[in-house]
Design a protein around this nucleic acid. Sequence first.
DNA 1: GTGTTACATGCAAGTCACTTGCAATTGTAA
DNA 2: TTACAATTGCAAGTGACTTGCATGTAACAC
Lengths: 138, 138
Amino acid sequence: MASSMLDRLKAGGKKLTKPRKAILAVLEQSPLPITAADVHDRLKAQRKPADLVTVYRNLAMLQELGLVNTVGLHDGQMRYEVRHGREHHHHIQCRGCGKIVDLMLCPIKKLTALVEAKTKFAVDSHTLEFFGWCPQCR
Amino acid sequence: MASSMLDRLKAGGKKLTKPRKAILAVLEQSPLPITAADVHDRLKAQRKPADLVTVYRNLAMLQELGLVNTVGLHDGQMRYEVRHGREHHHHIQCRGCGKIVDLMLCPIKKLTALVEAKTKFAVDSHTLEFFGWCPQCR
DNA sequence: GTGTTACATGCAAGTCACTTGCAATTGTAA
DNA sequence: TTACAATTGCAAGTGACTTGCATGTAACAC
Ligand SMILES: [Mn+2]
Ligand SMILES: [Mn+2]
Ligand SMILES: [Zn+2]
Ligand SMILES: [Zn+2]
């Protein structure tokens, strides 16, 4: 686990329990955002089962500490990915098979100032997701 | 109601029932996307109550016919707005009061070709939502 | 090591948006 | 007016996620 993560956890008064370490390991092993149920399944597969509610509570905590990002693809479940120094980016999901691919780009940054000027809001974040058909499902 | 809507409904073999007309009226009177519960509440306020499940079924049907857009703001409820010839656009929501404002712009169209080239997906849609603080909540 | 304690876990039950089954109703068109 | 498919309302079901609470355990001080 990245030591910055350990530091952030310690700074937040968090304990390094066995389930928590396993959850963090699962997240770090996943290059793409995964659901709480995914995490739960992979924990069981790795013979380190933890209750689903423990997964949810840890994901919420990690999000509060800014260690994971949430990705909402409007299919009824949130997905989570470790931040881990990776740049802000977006995703595309296939409508056929559900495959998700990272898009290492954000076309929005330049637009924030324009949106702020138009709306007088102070913009602090945005979500941008693409949907379509992957080569196999086309 | 816009006559194109009537045409699309008729073409889809849909009946113009009393609840359905009231639901369409509520949607047409709302300049911003609203939830199924909002529609339900406004129907009651207008003395034309309809069951919440009827609202949900009509919203799903209208979406299938392409007469309404869905807007997902990741707060656990979908929102709906009539398409009604308005251009594709996006929204910004205040984290304080929940206020939603239309952004009559889409900076993404030009990007679709780039995303398709990078991923080999056939992109057919995207979602883009902004979050921040409105002037009153700042 | 032992003890202390705040944090964390697991189970059960609860919530909330949304969906489904089904019998009764209604719009539409012959 | 009749006939029938579409639609409605109510009740029950689903699924993701949350909360209450008793038990467990990491962390830190002796
Ligand atoms: Mn990603
Ligand atoms: Mn809008
Ligand atoms: Zn971005
Ligand atoms: Zn757009």
